[in-house]
Design a protein around this nucleic acid. Structure first.
Length: 372
DNA sequence: AAGGCGGGGAC
DNA sequence: GTCCCAGCCTT
């Protein structure tokens, strides 16, 4: 077994020699960029985040710029990253910090955790990386490392198991002196980064690199051959199938977009008009003077964590004598030129559908067409 | 305590 | 195809 007091010093030594040191958000102790990176990294892998992070920093270099930007612009930069409530909370949090916190991040976990989009683990990560706080994170990496090194059974998504892991994680923190010193800050940062690095580079889900692990000699899972079964997997659940129709309404070079409701799937994003069935589709099209059959494009299958969605895109073109603006009355509908779509926050599958309009493969598209 | 919420990488 | 990732929020 690994002694509690042995864990932190061994991890810190390993991180300083073998951990990651050149990720974009590690080049600074600016609370703004650290906060941004932590939000983006929620449920999202490092390799996916990097490009989004760099684009975001370029467009919104500081808290002031983000707070003063329209939410729509923030959503457009976030488009494709998923979990869009993160972007809405990010924007709301920036404005809150400007108006209620003098544009400064609080340096205590208890205050950080009150901010929108910041939970217990993210609060700890920000407090450590920006301020050298003596707090523990508990993310997916840490849960996997702790489950294996200390042989913790039970699905970590279950409350009881998670509570036990928080307690264990707190007990593993390196000793800390009062008052805090720069050396202490650096130790906390190496320790916290080490937890993430170990889980992300060695103690990975599929095939952990135990031979290179600093805890190999005392790891409960390794010693008992349980690397494959720890952490305990999520209970299996069936994934429902759903289908929906989306209307691609073309008016010259523009296409009609609708803003989705603020809550629910793709909340607040712009999307194609969505209808549940063919009857609703016909009724919708009729409002724009369309009576001809619509052209069905190839269905798109999109898989979420909890269900699978088949999108059936239907294409229609307004006749030149129609007056489409008369049918678009509210601010939640807009005609957008196909070249201007990148300025809109669109769900990834919708962006994919519209991309096929830009560079259609005529033979393929024709082959897939039929009428409804 | 349980479920909702995206998208993509790894296998 | 499956599983899960630097989780948080609402109910």
């Amino acid at each position: 077994m690994i002694a509690i007091a042995e864990f932190a010093p061994r991890l810190i030594t390993w991180q300083r020699q073998f951990g990651r040191h050149d990720l974009p958000w590690q080049l600074t102790r600016d609370p703004y960029t650290i906060w941004l990176s932590e939000i983006m990294l929620q449920q999202t892998q490092v390799s996916t985040v990097i490009a989004y992070y760099l684009r975001f920093i370029e467009r919104f270099p500081n808290l002031t710029a983000l707070a003063h930007a329209p939410l729509d612009e923030v959503m457009a930069v976030w488009s494709g990253l998923g979990y869009y409530s993160r972007a809405r909370n990010l924007h709301r949090c920036a404005q809150l910090l400007m108006t209620e916190y003098h544009g400064q991040f609080p340096n205590q976990v208890n205050a950080l955790i009150e901010l929108p989009g910041i939970g217990r683990s993210t609060a700890a990560a920000i407090a450590v990386f920006a301020f050298g706080a003596h707090e523990t994170i508990l993310d997916g990496n840490v849960k996997r490392v702790l489950a294996r090194v200390f042989g913790i059974e039970g699905f970590p998504g279950e409350k009881q198991t998670e509570n036990a892991m928080w307690k264990l994680a707190e007990s593993l923190l390196p000793p800390h002196s009062e008052p805090a010193t720069e050396l202490n800050d650096l130790a906390m940062q190496a320790y916290t980064q080490g937890l993430m690095d170990l889980g992300a580079t060695l103690c990975v889900r599929g095939r952990p690199a135990c031979t290179r692990c600093p805890f190999q000699t005392g790891c409960a899972a390794h010693l008992s051959g349980r690397e494959k079964t720890l952490p305990t997997a999520r209970p299996k659940k069936s994934k429902p199938m759903r289908r929906t129709l989306m209307l691609i309404l073309c008016n010259g070079p523009t296409v009609l977009l609708e803003r989705r409701p603020p809550a629910g799937i793709w909340g607040g994003l712009w999307s194609l008009p969505e209808v549940p069935d063919a009857a609703a589709l016909v009724a919708y099209a009729a409002r724009f003077g369309i009576t001809d059959p619509l052209t069905a494009l190839a269905p798109i299958v999109h898989t979420f964590t909890h269900f699978q969605l088949t999108i059936e895109p239907k294409l229609a073109t307004l006749s030149s004598r129609a007056a489409p603006s008369a049918s678009v009355t509210d601010t939640n509908q807009t005609w957008v030129s196909v070249d201007g779509l990148q300025a809109y926050g669109l769900p990834a599958p919708v962006r994919r559908i519209l991309d096929t309009l830009r560079s259609p493969i005529p033979s393929l598209q024709t082959a897939l067409e039929f009428t409804v």
